[in-house]
Design a protein around this nucleic acid. Structure first.
Lengths: 219, 219
DNA sequence: TAAGTAATCCCCATAAATAGGTAGAGAAAT
DNA sequence: ATTTCTCTACCTATTTATGGGGATTACTTA
């Protein structure tokens, strides 16, 4: 008899985990090795374990999926991972691919696709759910890009630590005066950060910044 | 032999639906009657069907859970409903209760709780998952309310259709001038909407509005 | 050492948002 | 028939945000 493909699942919603387990159990060649409810748990788990495939949700408390992949990359851990995501944000997908993700599944997809994805990635292929494939195509061909995706900003806009701090405070509904008080810097400085944030993220106003923060899980 | 409790599931994530079905199938007294992937489908479904219990996700495209309940209330449809939600926002819970929801489940809860909830609601009781119960308690006792929950706003904040339109445009980075142009109304009117939105959602500024929109999937 | 980059601060000016009102027309509900 | 709700619009005033510069210090890297 052959070995089963072992899978570890990371998602903060237990119901979803149970669902995925139920789906996976319908395939005789795959078995669930365990699960994590937070990114922190994944990082703890990887220290002494591994699975053939890690199914990784992006939105998790205590280190999200991106941070988990970043950790893997930094520690040179070659754990195969399939990303589970609620929205098909192309920018995110690209970032995840760069961080070494092997597959990308939208939560919209049927359970069957998880099984397909697991088999594909196990064989060494990449797997993308249809919606994401289409979005990537549109991005590369440059046409018909749906709203919310800004092709001009394909370039990584790495924000400086201080900029991220300011961005977080903006997203938490603080005014520049308040931010200046909190960070103990002058209002002018905060204004300067606002300007560079607007330029780097290529959005129109503070609301765009907040949405950028949400999308990129800077929260 | 007795009749089984019939359940209809509404959620835009098929994987989650499959998971819930798998969980429910472990209980011999409950059966899944069908499912919907959008609020629109639920509204179509209710026109010629019903189930003992509707399991309703808040975040859905084409009419979210709130709008579905609002529709039920308006049409005086007495469909029992258990709300499924990703976050335990007390404000939301209260709104849903006022709209006639019979139970409230966090997606964090285990599958077992769905079954408990279904049985409880079927008997005529209300059901709340623990996290939500705690939050409601804190709200009523007024202490130790976690950030993000604003106790002052106990009052129902159902937004009017026009307010939602404005909110969407705000969230899409439009200024008041632009919104006035798009909706063909005066800027003053847009300002009025901004004021009532701020009051109803009880947030501090436009960024709070955008975050509210994101949380409530008004997008 | 020269070139960057990050963090800090300032000027000036305009555009936009917030806060406090008031108020009318029409629809819907009681 | 009267109240309530929604959409519409205006006034006044203040506070924030945006857009265009320029500039210093300190640290790192080619």
């Amino acid at each position: 008899m052959k070995n089963k493909i072992s899978v570890h699942i990371a998602d903060d919603h237990k119901i979803l985990i149970e669902g995925i387990i139920a789906v996976i159990n319908t395939d005789e060649f795959i078995e669930v090795e365990g699960y994590s409810l937070t990114g922190k748990q994944v990082i703890e788990w990887i220290k002494s374990n591994s699975a053939d495939i890690l199914i990784l949700d992006i939105n998790m408390p205590e280190y999200d999926g991106i941070e988990v992949l970043r950790y893997f990359k930094q520690k040179k851990i070659t754990q195969k991972a399939i990303i589970l995501s609620s929205y098909d944000d192309v920018k995110l997908v690209q970032e995840m691919i760069n961080l070494g993700a092997n597959g990308f599944l939208s939560k919209d997809s049927a359970g069957l696709h998880i099984i397909e994805a697991i088999h594909a990635v196990h064989k060494g292929d990449q797997y993308f759910s249809d919606a994401i494939k289409n979005n990537l195509l549109k991005l590369y061909t440059g046409k018909n890009v749906k709203s919310g995706v800004r092709p001009e900003s394909t370039i990584l806009n790495s924000l400086t630590p201080r900029e991220v701090e300011v961005l977080k405070l903006i997203t938490n509904e603080h005014s520049s005066t308040e931010i200046a008080g909190i960070l103990n810097i002058s209002q002018s400085t905060v204004d300067t950060y606002r300007k560079s944030l607007l330029k780097k993220t290529n959005v129109k106003n503070s609301i765009g910044l907040a949405m950028y923060a949400v999308k990129n899980n800077i929260i």
